[in-house]
Nucleic acid binder design. Structure first.
Lengths: 346, 346
DNA sequence: TATATTTTTGCAATCGATTGCAAAATGTTA
DNA sequence: TAACATTTTGCAATCGATTGCAAAAATATA
């Protein structure tokens, strides 16, 4: 009933055993200079008295927090929540804790989040950039103080920061080539802010694939928006109102692709025969929509695990961060009905 | 270039201004006893010298962490990531930080997570229970020390802990009644572990609706599984192999409902005419599947916001937790094609 | 037994911010 | 100007764990 059970400290243990707090402190963390017997007594007393270490005191003294910060654009997307789950697993196993915050796709909030992380003295920071982040001055303080900074997915190339991502260029190249193989001659591309590597690279892959296959690039077929469901809907109308409609669409994200498909289906466009579709991300919805959506699969969970492991290895084993400049994870083209034209060779 | 820029402390500021650290400390937090002019000087010096408060020292002295812990079954579900996003927003605005961990639906991990939260001295804890948690002894230490504990969605009734959830009973009652109205006479129900309020209440609502409408309850039509996509697939086969097939299915979760529908569609079952379907959660996939899935909508984001606000109000304004015993949020029946039989009156 | 070695332990300072209480500075009133 | 009230400030202890260094205890060697 007592709200006020007193906290047990190493001094209480020391008193009880008639030894010094220093010995207790060392004993608790298995310091080699402490006698085995004394250690046993200390551990027993600690357990019996319900001791729990005060991490503030320890952090204050040791100047490290055992906390890793994470800043992501949004927590509630299928991909990102997979990433977070992967990070959480690795970090938790290493006895670190996570501070998580979301930038809500705004650079302004990202800046303030970074500041909060800095003031809370995270031991490391993992970041996937907001939609409109134009520079990373707000992360300089970390770099200057030698606090490890790792980028993932939406990265920023920096010599001191490892980056974990996929080969967006190649994935986009492959998926575009696939559409061309299926007989598409006018392929539209819907993408996001070209400041972000993920979207710029996908656009580049799309354009290169067109070029290599001698398909002329038509800039009325390139739409840049925020890749939301609403934007997908609007893009559908925009594309259907063109003087010459596309016969294929490659969207840089499944959510947007699917709402675009749905809007087109309502206007009686036949997918894939009138217009073939391809997305990106292998979102759960992509194999629910009919026809199922051709897309690029890459594992958020693994990306989270990998990024976290690099961070933890640096913090725990003092691994050199420079050594891992960047880490490219596997991605895979998944061909489904949305891009398989009837008359095609495949 | 210097990795080792020294941290600025209140003592450095005090020295520079020839005043005491106590005054600096008070000045920085706008203590009323400090002269306006002195305050201005302190703030200016702090800014100029790049001071940042050391939260460890502060926490150590104040015995509070400004950290709120969250334990959820999984981070990567559409619903839960919405909840987390809502929590993050409220908590962040109040200048608190979040420790997040996932129990992965296992009581064992939930126990160890709770312990970690306790040792890290969170100021409050928010929990949605794991699939198989059978008691909450692992949370007693929080209750005993007066650390506020709030349950949401998958709750545990406890006089000292507010709970935020929806009326699962009524929602299930409504959705089952709707299926009956549509002419269903043999309604199967797929649900999860009946230890969890959310599933037990939904099952209860289902059964009561049957009873009130004089539809006999057939226990071969009640399937309890883990509500995963795989389980939905298996349930489809189980139901189709019954001597008399159901003409309606109410699943306690959309993910499972959709995989069940997909499996049935593959066997040429016509939905809704052969078998009507209803789910729960309004997952994004529910309006992508064809036919679109009738379901119960409840806003994870709002649930997260609400739960977090109760916590924050308690911590910041010292609101009484007892006062809010439980908070029932709105949920809404969303009728879509999956449950609209052709010959029905509606 | 005396001396040298090796193992164990303790002293005391340190990490920065906070706060009760007393003292100093300033302002007010008679 | 004296006496008193009000504002501002500073002293010094405190929150617990950590750690360099020295001292004590235990063990080994001559």
């Amino acid at each position: 009933m007592s709200d006020q059970e007193k906290e047990v400290t190493i001094y209480d243990i020391a008193n009880k055993l008639n030894i010094s707090a220093a010995t207790v402190s060392r004993g608790l963390k298995d310091h080699p200079a402490i006698n085995k017997n004394t250690k046993k007594k200390i551990l027993a007393a600690a357990a019996e008295m319900g001791y729990r270490s005060n991490s503030f005191a320890s952090n204050l003294r040791k100047k490290s927090s055992h906390i890793i910060g994470v800043i992501v654009p949004r927590l509630n997307s299928s991909f990102m929540s997979d990433v977070i789950a992967g990070i959480e697993k690795v970090v938790n196993e290493a006895n670190y804790n996570l501070f998580i915050s979301q930038s809500l796709e705004s650079m302004k909030k990202e800046v303030s989040n970074a500041k909060a992380m800095f003031n809370n003295r995270v031991d490391g920071l993992m970041v996937s950039l907001a939609y409109d982040t134009s520079d990373i001055a707000h992360f300089e303080s970390f770099i200057n103080r030698g606090i490890p900074l790792v980028f993932f997915d939406r990265i920023y190339e920096h010599e001191k920061c490892p980056s974990i991502y996929i080969n967006n260029y190649k994935a986009a190249y492959d998926i575009t080539s696939h559409l061309i193989e299926q007989g598409c001659k006018r392929i539209a591309h819907i993408s996001g802010n070209q400041l972000r590597n993920v979207y710029a690279e996908r656009t580049r892959g799309y354009q290169q694939a067109l070029k290599d296959n001698h398909v002329p690039f038509d800039d009325t077929l390139l739409i840049i928006n925020d890749l939301s469901a609403r934007a997908g809907n609007e893009a559908a109308n925009q594309l259907l109102n063109l003087p010459v409609r596309p016969d294929g669409v490659f969207v840089a994200n499944d959510i947007c692709a699917i709402s675009c498909m749905q809007a087109m289906k309502k206007q009686d466009i036949k997918i894939p025969d009138d217009i073939a579709f391809a997305g990106f991300n292998n979102d759960p919805t992509s194999c629910v929509i009919e026809p199922n959506l051709t897309t690029i699969d890459y594992k958020g969970y693994e990306m989270g695990e990998t990024a976290a492991r690099i961070m933890i290895n640096h913090l725990v084993n003092n691994d050199d961060l420079q050594k891992t400049q960047s880490l490219i994870l596997r991605s895979e083209l998944i061909i489904r009905e949305s891009s398989l034209k009837k008359g095609s060779k495949t």
